[in-house]
Design a protein around this nucleic acid. Structure first.
Lengths: 190, 190
DNA sequence: GTCTATATGGGGATAGAC
DNA sequence: GTCTATCCCCATATAGAC
């Protein structure tokens, strides 16, 4: 557990601002002002605006990748694996909802690391697709269009960051369980 | 059916660019270049960059508002109403996937019309919440956390624009039906 | 209706004093 | 580690010729 450096503070503050207005609309002067300093001073801690975005996004993308890999390697039913994926998203989004906004909305502004990010993203989708396809094959999951099931689940999980800061969702265990119910069982009573 | 004016073309092209990089990162030079003209020439057709965003977003927001009002006033079961809401989103997103990106991601860059937009958005969510709450009360919908059901459905519908341009989803009827199944019945087989 | 030229402001980033 | 001053570039938008 390292102590938080000034650089970490800057990145955290930047993520908060990026969530409100997006990467392109946030200026280094905005960021400096939120930190209580002048824009030029930021550059003693970070190399560039682009580096801030890169650190926010790549860190999160790698967390998802390694989290999913662990789930994939476990010996659970595919429905259980999906429940674990829900937990993974709730956990990461709870810890860092601001960063999640950049991951979802500002990845296209990555320069150097864009290809790497896209690779992680594509692989993530592909692995989740395989969990669903396996579930269909083993009769755990209905034989409906896999892409629709995949994107329905994934887009809900990806937008978690936008409502997780609200009061009702401070209990990650409970939220994960309720969300799994809705995503897996649907909302229909009959 | 009016013929498409140059202004309409500019707005359509702008929406396409906004979808790729977001409002703030698209310059009037980018837009002009995509239109095969110089930036200054754009101003013979539109008043400002801000006006383009406003037209894209407010038009769509009003379409959703009036669409939902019609559904709300019909005499259907609440589950049927949700199916109609799915159809509404599929229809609008199919007609204008580029504009939907701005509606979802760039509304915070609205200046003059921001408050109006937020009012429409809040009302939309509130009406949909009431449909779900009614459904729970009448035993059509499970008695699970309403906010979670609402946001799970809504975020899936809101992100439709990002995957609707793909080949498999060109049939709005079929897509609506499959998506309703997944959202309402879930994915579980047992 | 499109162009060139330009006004005006703000962006990211660096130099060098303290 | 923070500041002031500044560089250089590009943003939106307008004026006025063709």
């Amino acid at each position: 557990m390292k102590t938080e450096t000034r650089k970490d503070e800057i990145i955290k503050t930047a993520a908060k601002l990026f969530k409100e207005k997006g990467y392109s609309a946030v200026t280094m002067r905005d960021l400096a002002s939120a930190m209580g300093m002048k824009a030029a001073s930021l550059y003693n801690h970070i190399k560039s605006k682009q580096q801030i975005l890169k650190e926010i996004i790549i860190t999160l993308a790698e967390e998802f990748t390694s989290g999913l890999r662990q789930i994939q390697q476990s010996e659970k039913s595919n429905i259980k694996k999906i429940e674990e994926v829900v937990k993974l998203h709730v956990k990461i989004a709870s810890q860092n909802p601001y960063g999640m906004a950049s991951l979802n909305n500002d990845w296209m502004h990555l320069e150097e690391k864009l290809d790497y990010y896209l690779e992680l993203r594509t692989n993530y989708e592909e692995e989740l697709r395989e969990i669903i396809a396996e579930g269909v094959k083993k009769d755990e999951i209905i034989d409906e269009n896999i892409e629709i099931m995949l994107f329905s689940i994934l887009t809900t999980l990806r937008s978690l960051y936008s409502w997780i800061p609200k009061k009702e969702y401070r209990n990650p265990e409970k939220l994960s369980q309720q969300l799994s119910t809705v995503l897996i069982q649907g909302i229909n009573k009959n």
